[in-house]
């Protein structure tokens, strides 16, 4: 009798756990929130840089690219994605002839120890900052709420087949000291059509976006000091390569502070 009572209690407890410990999501699980923030030039809205490590022979990378687009819909200009094509999956072959690799991208890949693709880096340029696709959205959501006092303003124009850019960096609250600053600047190209492996299938006319084409700085950035109430101005020209299309080019600048934390980023499409 005693044994039976114990058994019965345990069975009821098990059933209790069974019915309660399941969250079944019925139907469409996509959230419809939008949180694009303000987009006035030069204010200190935090913009989140997401570095996407990808490759045209990486079969799961297009899923990551889609997720980035969903994130861009959700956060608008508050998220700035850049795509680095590197590693084994970016090697060129007869089926995948376009070379998207850059010295900037290759060096950053080595620095951040990226060996699995797709990978995303959000928040800092440290080894432990790399995240699998499943963590991107959460990382961006957390990062966008970390305030910043840094403002980056980019001016960019094309003269004589050369992109001439100028980044002006200011600290809107000089009483907050910003130390160990480094500036990184890259040129990205959108809507580049070439082959891509997607879920085991070859897509010959896949559209690659925000492809990093050129690093104005090295992968270790450009150290600078921001004294109170002063500005830091960085000028960076580059001649347009024959394989780039001028109308699709943009400039991305981001700044890291102590412990390689990415504290602000900015994006400028070249008119």
């Amino acid at each position: 009798m005693k044994t039976n009572t114990i058994l019965l209690t345990i069975l009821i407890a098990l059933l209790g756990i069974g019915f309660n410990a399941c969250d079944k999501i019925e139907g469409n699980p996509y959230e419809t929130i939008q949180d694009t923030g303000t987009t006035i030039d030069g204010d200190t809205v935090k913009r989140v840089l997401l570095i996407e490590f990808t490759g045209h022979r990486c079969t799961n990378c297009p899923q990551a690219h889609q997720q980035l687009q969903i994130l861009s819909e959700t956060y608008g200009e508050r998220i700035i994605p850049i795509a680095i094509h590197s590693g084994y999956y970016s090697d060129t072959t007869t089926t995948y002839p376009t070379n998207y690799t850059t010295p900037f991208g290759d060096n950053l890949t080595t620095l951040l120890n990226i060996d699995l693709y797709p990978r995303g880096v959000v928040g800092s340029l440290n080894k432990d900052a790399q995240k699998p696709l499943a963590e991107w959205a959460e990382a961006v959501a957390i990062e966008k709420d970390i305030p910043t006092t840094m403002a980056i303003n980019i001016e960019s124009s094309i003269e004589n087949n050369t992109v001439i850019s100028k980044a002006t960096i200011t600290n809107t609250k000089p009483e907050i000291a910003l130390n160990d600053l480094k500036l990184y600047a890259v040129l990205v190209e959108d809507s580049v059509v070439s082959a891509q492996l997607n879920n085991g299938q070859l897509i010959t006319d896949y559209v690659h976006n925000h492809v990093v084409r050129h690093g104005f700085t090295s992968h270790l950035g450009e150290p600078f000091v921001l004294n109170s109430e002063s500005k830091f101005i960085y000028n960076f020209p580059v001649a347009i390569h024959s394989s780039w299309r001028a109308k699709k080019l943009s400039v991305v600048v981001f700044v890291t502070s102590e412990e390689n934390k990415i504290i602000q980023a900015a994006y400028k499409h070249i008119e």
């Binding site: 410990a21 969250d23 996509y30 949180d35 969903i70 959460e138 961006v140 959501a141």
Partner: peptide
């Protein structure tokens, strides 16, 4: 059963699987 909080802004994730 596994419990893990859902902090994903773009997907409704099951917390108890």
């Amino acid at each position: 059963s596994r419990y893990q909080a859902d902090r994903n802004p773009i997907l409704k994730l099951p917390e108890n699987v």
